[in-house]
Design a protein around this nucleic acid. Structure first.
Length: 368
RNA sequence: GCGGGUGUAGCUCAGUUGGUUAGAGCGCGAGAUUGUGGUCCUUGAGGUCGUGGGUUCGAUUCCCAUCUCCCGCC
């Protein structure tokens, strides 16, 4: 990664990340395409939305259609018709989010498929094999994520196991065309975070993931943990805050030195009728928009905003027509990409702090 | 015309052997959603229990009349 600018007052910075499928301007937001598709948005529209990189999910693609099949198809890029960079999650988060189905041991994780209940086993080596088959530009190490509320002892054990697994991932991963990002854990315990970060840095050749945040803890606690880690990050590689976030979290993350984010929020709330706009959150489903014949966001030039009114989008959402969810998802992704673009410009012009203030003023506290 | 049935929330229906603020599903309103197990979840509003009488301490419930709709018969 090449640095373009480091803000003097905050951790915010602008850089360029090189990958086999093109450069990425950071800070950046990655839409989530769990099952080799960003739900409801075509690759062409993702490009219109100025998407630079997508995230796809190892666990889900391993289950269906299977990583061998994706490899046979010519790799994930070809399979899903996306020729820009892709990052794959390792499946570690699913171990956490599907916890009822699994048994975590030092050697790896035994779990039952959420699809058909069949027994599976994934360990660091297997996760690397799957990610190698999928063929993303950036791959994540197999980690153990803990929930908010897990005690110190449990969080320490998971953090230490993540480090052991990291070493195995690092040793096993051989493809030089795929950049392996290690993941920092440690829950909300500051000393665990610092310990994890320091021990992870030797493996952070291309980038570093910050995992285990935004898992239910209050935002101020997440921010405090990030403040704590900021002085210790390596400067030459991108820092990726996993699973974040909402517009306000993106800004706060950038101010705390984060370069990459991914989040399902934009598409999940989008297909359920909530828009993220430059004037704040708009719950299109709500009755007040029944006869609102204006676009979602008057500052947006996405296809949805150029062609449809809130009244129409509300109607289609309410009757369950796909176009509503598709359009609001497209808008949301467009908005987050635009937000990141504005953030990069603000950093370059030494006014990220002012930009953040304007953002909160303009969105009226609807993001919180 | 006769016989039987029916009428409870916007819709489809429960219910009460007569007893405090009458329920469900759907719909409607609102909230929620952060490395996605394709809306799950939380919550709110809304009813003269067809109408008018009667019996009773008390009727949505029992009785009478009347109206509505459905079925059958002539």
């Amino acid at each position: 990664m090449k640095s373009r600018k480091q803000d003097k007052r905050t951790g915010a910075r602008v850089g360029v990340l090189h990958t086999p499928h093109g450069d990425i301007m950071t800070p950046t937001y990655m839409p989530v395409g769990t099952q080799a598709t960003v739900k409801g948005i075509t690759p062409a529209s993702l490009k219109d939305a100025k998407t630079q990189i997508l995230l796809a999910n190892t666990y889900h693609l391993y289950m269906r259609p299977g990583d061998e099949l994706v490899k046979k198809a010519g790799g994930l890029h070809k399979f899903m018709a996306w020729d820009r960079p892709i990052l794959t999650d390792s499946g570690g988060f699913q171990v956490f989010s599907l916890a009822k189905l699994n048994k975590i041991k030092d050697e790896g994780v035994y779990f039952n498929s959420h699809v058909d209940g069949s027994l599976h086993f994934i360990d660091p080596e297997k996760a690397m094999d799957i990610e190698n088959n999928l063929g993303a530009d950036i791959i994540m190490a197999f980690d153990q994520c803990t929930a908010y509320g897990v005690d110190y002892k449990g969080s320490k054990a998971a953090m230490e196991r993540t480090l052991k697994w990291l070493d195995r991932c690092y040793t096993h991963h051989k493809n030089p065309m795929q950049a392996l990002f290690p993941i920092v854990q440690g829950n909300v315990y500051k000393d665990l975070r610092i310990e994890s970060l320091k021990a992870t840095i030797p493996y952070a050749k291309y980038g570093i993931g910050i995992g285990g945040l935004s898992v239910g803890e209050p935002k101020n606690i997440m921010y405090e943990v990030m403040d704590e880690m900021l002085p210790y990050y390596p400067t030459a590689v991108p820092r990726y805050l996993m699973g974040v976030g909402s517009p306000d979290c993106l800004i706060e993350g950038v101010r705390r030195g984060i370069d990459m984010f991914d989040c399902v929020l934009a598409t999940r709330v989008g297909r359920n009728g909530t828009a993220l706009t430059s004037h704040g959150k708009v719950v299109v489903r709500n009755g007040v928009y029944k006869e609102d014949f204006t676009p979602l966001d008057d500052e947006c030039d996405c296809y949805a905003c150029k062609n449809y009114t809130k009244a129409y989008l509300r109607h289609t959402i309410n009757v369950g027509e796909m176009i509503g969810g598709m359009m609001i998802s497209l808008h949301n992704v467009t908005y987050l990409n635009k937000l990141m673009s504005e953030i990069r410009t603000a950093i370059m012009e030494d006014r990220i702090t002012e930009y953040a203030e304007e953002f909160y003023l303009k969105t009226g506290g609807t993001y919180k």
